[in-house]
Simulated scan of single mutants.
Amino acid sequence: MTFRTIYGRTHSENGWRNCDSNECITLFYAGKPVLVRSGDAATVLGWWMDWYNANVEPIKSQVWGWSAINDVASSNHLAGVGVDLNAPWHPWTVDASKNFTPAQIAKCREGLRLAEGNMFWGQDWGRRDPMHWQLNSGTASGNGASPKLAAFAQKIRDGKLGTAGPVYVPPPPAAPSGRPTIRIGATGQAVRDLQARLNRDYPRYSKLVVDGDFGPATDSVVREFQARARLVVDGIVGPATWNALGL
C-alpha cells in the first residue's frame, strides 16, 4: 500500500487519499483492463459499471480508471475512485443532453438514486464531464472506505439491490485475438484495422491517416493508448494491446 502527494495534493476532489497503482486492483470489462481502488471502492465501482452497461448503454470502449498523472490536479482518477465510460461518445465539457437520449439520462438518475448517495456523475459539475463516474464525497474515511460506503458495498455482495443489476464478477482476460504482432515498419490490413479503431474510439488524440503504414505517427498514438490502458508502453501491438482495443 503506497500513498502519495501529487501536484501538491494528498487527496483527490472527493476526499480519497491519492495512491499508487499498488493500492488498486485490475478489473476486466469486456476484456478490457481498468485499475480501480481495491476493497469496497472496487466493489461499488464494479457494480456501477455493470448497472450502467445493463441499463444505460453497452460499454464499448476502454474504461479509464486510476491514472498516475492527470490534467486536473484534483482528479479522482489519481486516487483510483473514478471511471470514464464510453469516453469517445460523451466528451468532456459537452452536456449529456447532446449525446445521451432523455431515457438514458433518466436511467443515469435512477442509478444514482439506487447508489444511495455513494456515486457522483461528472455531468453535475459546472464544467460538464458526462463520461465520468466516481465515488461521491463522504465515501472515504482515513485511507479507506467510510462506514456508509462499506455498508453499501456489503449490500452489493449480499445481492440485496434488487433491480440494481447483477453483482459484479470480473471475467477472465480475453483470449489472444489471433491477430499478428505489429510495430513500427509494419504495413498491411492489420495496420489499417489498428489505425481505424484508434481513430474511431480515441478521436481526442488519434487522427491518423488510415493508410496501412505503421510509421512514427501511428507508433506515437499506440504508445499513448498503451499508457492510458495501463499496458507496457513499447509501441508493439501484440495480444494485450489488440485485446484492450477490442480487436
Rank of each mutant, 00 (worst) to 15 (best):
N14M: 07
R204F: 07
G8M: 05
T101P: 10
S21Q: 12
W51N: 12
A190Q: 11
D193Q: 14
A96C: 15
N199C: 11
A227H: 09
K160F: 07
T101L: 09
S21G: 07
A174H: 01
D84C: 09
R17S: 04
W125R: 11
C19N: 00
G117E: 04
I236C: 08
T93S: 15
D201H: 13
K155S: 15
A153E: 04
R4Q: 13
T43Y: 01
R192A: 13
Q195L: 10
P239R: 05
G165C: 05
V222T: 03
A41L: 03
Y202F: 15
V56N: 04
V83K: 02
A145W: 01
W242R: 04
L198W: 07
G188V: 08
G80K: 02
A140S: 15
G111R: 00
W133F: 15
R230Q: 14
G122L: 06
D20C: 05
A196S: 15
K148S: 14
N18F: 05
R230D: 14
G111W: 00
T218W: 04
W121V: 03
P216N: 12
V72E: 12
T43F: 02
A42I: 01
G162Y: 09
A145P: 07
L45Y: 01
W89K: 13
P173E: 00
W92V: 13
P176K: 01
A151G: 12
R183M: 12
Q226W: 05
R109A: 11
M119D: 03
D95E: 12
Y7S: 14
